[in-house]
């Protein structure tokens, strides 16, 4: 498949889970993938940015890994510099890096509010700002498009997950940033969209590893399964398929949209 042939895609949080699935899918579609993650993989047998890039290369794709803390402006600048050096042009950004954490308001402090917002909202701002600066300076392609951005929001930015204040506020913020940037840069040919994943089994959250390995289901996973109209929970590849549409030449007239990939959770 060659739907992203000749394109360069930068994917943050690509060491594992959804980000890794996106990086691998985009590479399989012909993109040069810039894998960005804080985790370089030195301490893990399977996760990490370097292992993701290696897996892509072993499958015949092209990828480079740049260890990046997306909460640090200087590291985001270094990431984009490395991407430019590798390819000369950034066509696609998938701003995916983030961590599921949050507390009820009385369990938060101003300090951990700031820390959570730095990680799950401000980092997306930094990466989007750098991407738009890079894309706006490029020649438009034949279809008038200079670049496509896909931001990872969440079902939990549309619903209100009990006890996860900072997470849901940050994810709602990502969706609104997506709308704002879509309006502000449509004229420049930059399409900005977001994905709202539902319960995606990445194997990293409590109970998921056992569910994946043996089908043993804990209470939280069982609830998610019961609550999702589709007869299974999500997979990282489900999100990768949606991200591919939004990043591909088939996305021509969609901008500012929050595409839910949730098996019907928010519809129900």
């Amino acid at each position: 498949m060659t739907r992203l042939a000749g394109r360069t895609a930068l994917v943050t949080g690509a060491a594992s889970g959804i980000g890794r699935a996106i990086a691998c899918r985009f590479a399989a579609e012909g993109a040069l993938v810039v894998v960005a993650d804080l985790d370089d993989g030195e301490n893990s047998a399977r996760d990490g940015g370097a292992p993701t890039a290696r897996a892509i290369a072993e499958a015949g794709g092209r990828a480079i890994f740049q260890r990046t803390d997306v909460t640090e402006e200087s590291e985001v600048e270094a990431l984009f510099a490395a991407a430019r050096q590798a390819s000369g042009r950034i066509d696609i950004l998938v701003s995916n890096a983030g961590t599921f954490r949050g507390n009820p308001i009385l369990a938060t402090t101003p300090a951990n509010w700031d820390a959570d917002m730095d990680l799950n909202l401000r980092s997306h701002y930094l990466v989007n700002r750098a991407a738009i600066a890079a894309m706006a300076g490029e020649e438009a392609r034949a279809d008038g498009i200079r670049g496509r951005i896909v931001n990872m929001a969440s079902q939990l930015g549309v619903t209100a997950p009990p006890g996860h204040l900072t997470y849901s506020v940050a994810k709602a913020g990502i969706a609104q940033m997506t709308r704002q940037l879509a309006v502000d840069y449509a004229r420049e040919g930059i399409l900005v969209n977001a994905i709202g994943p539902g319960r995606i089994i990445t194997g990293y959250h409590p109970g998921e590893a056992e569910y994946v390995a043996s089908g043993t289901i804990d209470a939280a996973t069982a609830y998610s399964l019961a609550r999702t109209p589709f007869p299974r929970l999500g997979r990282p590849d489900d999100v990768a398929g949606a991200a591919l549409f939004l990043a591909s030449d088939d996305c021509t007239f969609v901008s500012g949209h929050l595409l839910m990939v949730d098996g019907g959770w928010t519809a129900y």
Binding site: R179, P229, F230, V239, G241, F245, H257, M260, A267, Y268
Partner: peptide, 20 residues
């Protein structure tokens, strides 16, 4: 397509950002 296997109950806006 199979890429949308886990998308359901959704209304996808294809409007060039018009509704924004």
């Amino acid at each position: 397509s199979d890429d949308a296997s886990f998308v359901t109950g959704h209304t996808l806006l294809v409007d060039g950002g018009r509704m924004l």
